[in-house]
Design a protein around this nucleic acid. Structure first.
Length: 500
RNA sequence: GCCCCUGUCGUCUAGCCCGGCCUAGGACAUCGCCCUUUCAAGGCGGCAACACGGGUUCGAAUCCCGUCGGGGGCGCCA
């Protein structure tokens, strides 16, 4: 695929906000392609939009990519032989080549005002034509233009695009793509404020950074012919292109805030595993030939194939992401599960900043048990609430109706009596007592256990009691920011409520 | 408006290039059953799609044309 030497790809975000999952997918596909081919992955920051770019966003961007598990060989923080890697630091380069194009007559100064251009646009639209720059300033000589510039007039630089013919290119995912040159106006390459325009800066950068494959979003397809013309004007060989379809929300519009979490940052906060997010993102438009579903980054690197990427847009499905996240959570070791869970438990106020080794051991056990069926780590405190928050005074409707049944009364009264004198409790004792109650009252199965569950947990559902009781008994021996009540304390509290 | 791309279960997709092996496969979701002292997890099973209309062909999800739907683009934004 490569003509000579190593494959070089790049991810070139602009630091204007948090990194979106659509961009993250583009980054991932570039990274996968680089890694599976022993290529170079470069990170370039496109910060020519001074109004919107912020340094803080660049830091977030780097942090998010690292968190995802992607690494780059060259970049603003990593260095490299083709730097600088921030467009704002490459201005001199853009000017040098713009001058060359100007001198060779391949580009020219344009003095049209925004209003004039807008008028032309509207006229074209009204006539049912594609709005294309008229070329009004094409014949202004360089000499004249420089005079006008010197006189203080503002001018932008446009690339001269041939009027006839077409531009073709072979896109790895879309196949042969062709554009009619009649529909492409002369694009601005340098704005009147001296800043390079996107279409120009990318070409200079990609060429100078020796990028061999440009893998980016579908929204750039129609920019590609302009860029190819630029490569040719500069006498450079264009790279191979691959345009990825868009990522949409449920309603088939571009994924946005109102669809839910959309930034990598948000998914991290919610407790989605990076490997799960990468796995999911890779499956948006791609699938391995054997149909495997749960894959690690290393497996993705091995199986990924750019040629198998779908051309149609994909809808982001949170449910499937959560399912993959559950699968990846299952793959984690218990120490790792606790490590990831701890911040959420601390934030919920269940666990303090200091954790003793004994507490850690208990927490590992608790997380292992309670994480079953959890979509993301942020849901874990809700599960721990079963252990730490015992509030028999506010039962929900279901729990109340369970307790109010006639047979339930009998069971509860017997249970309270039998536990009254105890100062020790465990699951064996619980099993023995329930056996006796079953014999004495004749109540069994669900009617027997359900009221007892409500008495011990103040909820209608939750963990199996054979797991719950040992966990609570052991956990209640430790000091927690919020007291963890043991079973006997719960029963006594419950009996007081029952009497009232 | 104009240009380009795209269209298989609700969703992600396999199959399409190289027509028959497709009574269209898998996964998520959903529904049911099993397991179980509840829920979940797990196991088993069900529902569910070739956008539509014309061709070509003995035969079309697969090839061709059109219609409709969806997306992208048409900036001195990136």
């Amino acid at each position: 695929m490569e003509k000579n030497g190593r494959i070089r790809v790049r991810f070139a975000p602009s630091p204007t906000g948090y990194i979106h999952v659509g961009n993250a997918r583009t980054a991932l596909f570039n990274w996968l392609f680089a890694r599976q081919n022993g290529g170079i992955f470069v990170l370039r920051v496109e910060d020519t939009d001074i109004e919107r770019s912020r340094e803080e966003y660049e830091r977030n961007l780097i942090q998010d990519l690292r968190w995802l598990g992607l690494d780059w060989d060259e970049g603003p923080d990593a260095g490299g032989n083709f730097g600088p890697y921030r467009q704002s630091e490459r201005l001199e380069l853009y000017h040098r080549y713009a001058n060359q194009l100007l001198e060779e007559g391949k580009a020219y100064y344009c003095f049209c005002t925004a209003e004039e251009l807008e008028k032309e646009r509207e006229a074209a639209l009204a006539e049912g034509r594609m709005p294309v720059y008229s070329g009004r300033c094409r014949n202004i000589s360089l000499k004249e233009a420089r005079l006008r510039l010197a006189a203080g007039e503002a001018g932008a630089i446009r690339l001269r695009v041939p009027d006839e013919g077409s531009i073709q290119f072979e896109d790895i995912v879309r196949g042969l793509v062709e554009f009619d040159l009649k529909l492409i106006g002369d694009p601005i390459i340098v704005r009147s404020n001296g800043m390079p325009a996107y279409n120009y800066a990318v070409v200079i950068d990609d060429a100078l950074m020796k990028i061999t494959h440009v893998i980016r979003g579908e929204d750039h397809v129609s920019n590609t012919p302009r860029q190819i013309i630029l490569y040719r004007a500069l006498g450079w060989e264009p790279p191979v292109f691959a345009h990825l379809s868009m990522v949409m929300g449920k309603d088939n519009t571009r994924l946005s805030k109102r669809h839910g979490a959309t930034s990598v940052d948000q998914f991290r906060r919610e407790g989605i595993l990076p490997e799960a997010l990468c796995n999911y993102l890779a499956f948006l438009g791609w699938s391995p030939p054997e149909g495997q579903e749960v894959l690690t980054l290393e497996q993705l690197v091995r199986l990924f194939d750019l040629r198998r990427v779908s051309r149609s847009a994909a809808i982001f499905d949170y449910e499937k992401l959560y399912w993959l996240n559950r699968q990846h959570i299952k793959l984690l070791r218990y120490e790792k599960k606790l490590e990831l869970a701890l911040p959420y438990l601390q934030e919920a106020g269940y666990v303090g900043t200091e954790v003793t080794p004994e507490q850690r051991e208990w927490l590992e056990k608790a997380v292992e048990i309670l994480i079953e069926g959890v979509d993301k780590f942020s849901q874990l405190p809700g599960k721990f609430s079963l252990l730490f928050d015992y509030q028999p005074e506010n039962l929900d409707a279901e729990a109340r109706s369970i307790v109010q049944a006639d047979s339930a009364r009998k069971v509860l009264v017997a249970f309270i009596q039998k536990t009254a004198g105890l100062n020790e409790f465990n699951y064996e004792i619980f099993a023995a007592i329930t056996g006796e109650i079953k014999k004495e009252t004749g109540v069994k199965g669900k009617d027997l256990f359900h009221p007892l569950r409500v008495a011990l947990t103040a909820r209608a559902s939750g963990l199996e009691l054979d797991k719950f009781i040992p966990l609570v008994e052991e956990g209640s021996r430790f000091d927690w920011p919020r007291k963890l009540k043991n079973c006997l304390e719960r029963i006594r509290e419950f009996s007081r409520i029952l009497e009232a």
